[in-house]
């Protein structure tokens, strides 16, 4: 670890707000990953679903997931720029 990295690590540790932002960023990133996996799983399920009603519900779920992820990704970007 060079001096700059060390200083950054110390700064991150001392600045409570920054530390909070980092925790938030990491949690959100984890959540985004989970949502992505869920979305992909749903997409696979939709492909194999034959029941029209079920298919429609699954598609709706995907639509909601997309909206949530869109919102999450925007927040993630904002948080990253603040860190």
């Amino acid at each position: 670890m060079n001096t700059n990295d060390l200083l950054k690590a110390i700064e991150n540790f001392v600045d409570t707000n920054k530390r909070e932002r980092i925790t938030r960023y990491e949690s959100l990133k984890r959540l985004m990953k989970k949502l992505k996996i869920k979305q992909n799983l749903l997409k696979d399920t939709v492909k194999n679903e034959t029941n029209k009603k079920c298919k429609k519900r699954l598609e709706e779920k995907i639509r909601v997931l997309k909206a949530q992820r869109k919102k999450g990704l925007k927040l993630l970007k904002e948080l990253k720029s603040e860190i």
Partner: peptide, 10 residues
Amino acid sequence: SDEAAENSVA
């Protein structure tokens, strides 16, 4: 932190 993340995306 997970609670906060979920709430922010809801």
